[in-house]
């Protein structure tokens, strides 16, 4: 069945290749990786990754454990550099500038490219201080300005109403879902352009997951989101584009509905259908 489908696909391939750029042309490119390779010592973890992410899109990255998806996302704000044995080749352009060579500082990159992790990791401080931490590091000291940033960020992260009366409470006292939204608010406080999310809901209950997913739909109006997820239904629900990583390669990257309804590659079909993983 799959071979036959590939055959038929090949015939229609030219048309689909022509169609995609027309839709994408309107949106500006945020990130573009060109033949990006990464090694952990001898382990060639990412191999010739060529991917483009556009403004105001939610991009999902899916793939089995160890396929390189988290490594790739961490490369986008140079977090992989924290591992001493990592070596990279190829380019990753952020807004047209190579993040490794253009002289952009890591601090500036990470300000413009925020990150939310798998487990909520608020600082052991008050809710207010958690969100105000980034702006303070950037030198904002005036209370009125900070108040404004904190409220705006908490509102954007859809948690303002739940915490507005207890901003001075320790963030650890919140539920996991609330803590994760505090972390999103903390990322938003420095007004990034892109938010990277590495399995942001895998430690959360279904209702909190729904809240984060709804929040992502709101955030995509102002930000670009790149999300790594193990939950394929989540990728299908929230993302505009999906890339499937397997053994360090990108097997297929396309509109999310194509990936989940009629993917071109048999491995993608088998993975999204849950035949392997």
């Amino acid at each position: 069945m799959a071979e036959l489908k590939t055959k038929i696909k090949q015939n229609t391939q030219e048309q689909s290749v022509e169609k995609s750029p027309i839709i994408q042309e309107e949106k500006e490119v945020v990130f573009q990786s060109k033949n990006f390779n990464l090694w952990y010592g001898d382990n060639h973890a990412l191999q010739d990754i060529n991917l483009t992410f556009h403004e105001n899109d939610i991009n999902a990255i899916i793939g089995p454990s160890g396929c390189g998806k988290s490594t790739f996302v961490k490369s986008l704000n140079r977090m992989t550099e924290l591992v001493p044995i990592v070596r990279t080749e190829g380019d990753i352009d952020f807004r047209g500038d190579d993040i490794f060579k253009s002289g952009m500082s890591v601090e500036e990159l990470r300000t413009r490219v925020g990150m939310v992790f798998q487990k909520p990791n608020p600082f052991p401080k008050s809710i207010y201080d958690n969100v105000a931490y980034g702006p303070r590091v950037h030198g904002i000291k005036k209370k009125a300005v900070l108040d404004q940033i904190v409220e705006k960020s908490l509102r954007s992260a859809s948690i303002w109403d739940e915490v507005k009366d207890r901003l001075t409470d320790n963030a650890y006292g919140l539920s996991g879902g609330q803590q994760q939204r505090i972390c999103i608010a903390r990322a938003l406080a420095v007004e990034p352009e892109v938010i990277l999310m590495d399995e942001p809901t895998s430690a959360l209950d279904p209702i909190s997951t729904t809240k984060i997913e709804d929040l992502m739909q709101e955030l995509k109006k102002d930000y670009s989101i790149i999300i790594v997820t193990h939950n394929m239904q989540q990728a299908a629900r929230v993302s505009d584009r999906t890339s499937f990583f397997y053994q360090g390669y990108v097997v297929e990257s396309d509109d999310t509905n194509v990936i989940f309804e009629n993917p071109s590659d048999k491995r993608t079909e088998d993975y999204v259908s849950g035949r392997f993983g």
């Binding site: 069945m1 799959a2 489908k5 394929m232 239904q233 299908a236 989940f260 309804e261 009629n262 993917p263 079909e269 999204v272 259908s273």
Partner: peptide
Amino acid sequence: QAPVATDLR
């Protein structure tokens, strides 16, 4: 089973 792709079709 939340089927997708060929399974869903």
